[in-house]
Amino acid sequence: MIKKIEISPENEKFLKKVNELSGQVITLCEQCGTCSGGCPLVTEMDITPSQMMRIVQLGQKEVLDYKAIWVCASCFTCTVRCPRQIDVSKVAEALRQIILRQAVDHIDIKAIPKEEIACLPQIALVSACRKFTG
């Protein structure tokens, strides 16, 4: 099913918010796909990084529903390669922040079994808390 989207001033607000949070000018993205082609996790994502950029450009809040923004490992490959020098990692981070700042965590630390926590490297746990919890 092909979905219709609406382009309204309301969308502009969302775009501005992401611009502000990420410190990037998202409309600068020319949709070349360099970020997606080099992304080591792209095959685990439901939308590609460049698609994420496109949806934000159009101000569609639905971008927050995709798994891709959580799959992003913040490896910065996209950031160092973007021919327009957009920090794509920061955009993904901004989108995660929009959700986390509403006190909605992406993972439940308490739900992780004790045995698993015991054998996890500390740094992985800290990183997970930083990335997935508000």
Binding site: Q31, G33, S36, G37, G38, V42, T48, S50, Q51
Partner: peptide, 10 residues
């Protein structure tokens, strides 16, 4: 390695 940005496939 490239994204087909029209088909949105890698």
């Amino acid at each position: 390695k490239v994204e087909d940005t029209l088909a949105r496939q890698i």
